[in-house]
């Protein structure tokens, strides 16, 4: 029993990271039609800025700067690189690929290729007893942050004007424009939100793995892509559900099966979903 509890909470902790990355990717794709390979770079920017700022500013302010830097990177990416390639989606993907390669290499040249020890709050290293299981508190940090983000994101989409524009834009960009709304502002906004969430994922991932390295974003990104496809492009709730499913499956199979079997089973799940509803994947879901 205690093993199941620990695996469940660890799986959900991992799911929290996937969700933070996938929800931003999903919104960016759903609204702007851009498959953003640079999303992993946003994650690394958030982590590295926090790591660099923590000794100077203290951890809480460093986290804020990390998230802000990642959000700014996202917004700049949209404004400078994506926007001029309006409607040329393949070129947009290619540019994010180039940015991802160059950006990670830039981080590497500044801070080196080796992993750095990442700071975490004191209490995250403690453990709490849950139903007989000794659960490290960093799991709760991850899960709590993701739940807060999920609630905030849904409220934003539901109750604000920009949320309305984003939900409508995911459904039909051209029609939003035809109502007199400059939908590109919303593009910049979702890139900034996606950047901020990815940056937060990078920071939380750094605290969870207690280290940060330039390429860390890329490996998490691939599972986030799977979550996006399973959850439905453009759907935040879908991302949350799919992230939980993928995180739990991965943890349980990795524990009870052979090493690496969990990762393989996630991709098998993707294949099954594709075979069962191929049209549902290519089509866009409604946001929120």
């Amino acid at each position: 029993m205690s093993t199941v509890v620990l695996l469940t909470l660890t799986g959900l902790g991992l799911a929290a990271l996937y969700f933070l990355i996938a929800s931003g990717l999903s919104l960016v794709f759903g609204l702007a039609g851009v498959l953003n390979f640079a999303h992993g770079l946003f994650l690394s920017v958030g982590a590295y800025v926090t790591w660099w700022a923590a000794p100077h500013l203290g951890l809480p302010l460093a986290v804020v700067s990390g998230v802000a830097a990642a959000a700014a990177t996202g917004a700049l990416t949209e404004l400078v690189l994506i926007r001029p390639l309006y409607t040329r989606h393949t070129e947009q993907v290619l540019v994010t690929v180039g940015l991802s390669l160059a950006g990670v290499a830039l981080l590497q040249s500044v801070w080196g290729a080796d992993a750095r020890v990442f700071p975490r709050p004191e209490w995250a290293s403690h453990v709490t007893g849950v139903l007989g299981a000794q659960v490290p508190d960093d799991r709760f940090l991850l899960i709590g942050a993701a739940v807060l983000v999920l609630v905030a994101l849904l409220a934003f989409l539901r109750f604000t004007r920009y949320g309305l524009v984003i939900r409508a834009g995911v459904e039909n960009r051209a029609m939003v424009r035809a109502l007199g709304i400059d939908v590109r502002t919303a593009f910049t906004l979702v890139f900034a939100i996606g950047g901020a969430l990815a940056g937060l994922a990078g920071i939380l991932g750094g605290m969870y793995f207690t280290s940060v390295s330039p390429g860390q974003g890329v490996s998490l990104l691939i599972f986030a892509f799977i979550v996006v496809v399973i959850g439905g492009l453009g759907s935040v709730t879908g991302s949350a559900v799919a992230a939980a499913g993928v995180g739990l499956l991965q943890q349980f199979v990795n524990y009870y099966g052979a090493a690496g079997a969990g990762d393989v089973s996630v991709v098998a799940l993707l294949a099954v979903v594709l075979l069962l509803r191929p049209a549902g994947i290519a089509g866009k879901a409604v946001a929120a």
Binding site: F29, G33, L35, H89, V93, I222, F225, I226, V228, V229, L233, A259, G260, D263, V264, V267, L270, A271, L274, L275, P278, I281, A282
Partner: peptide, 27 residues
């Protein structure tokens, strides 16, 4: 399997399949 999707979804699916190969090789 992958060709049941198109466009960007195809890219994501092929990426996921290849990642299994990468993971296996590393393990």
């Amino acid at each position: 399997v992958a060709l049941r999707t198109s466009g960007i979804a195809f890219s994501m699916v092929t990426l996921a399949f290849a990642e299994v190969g990468h993971i296996l090789v590393n393990r």
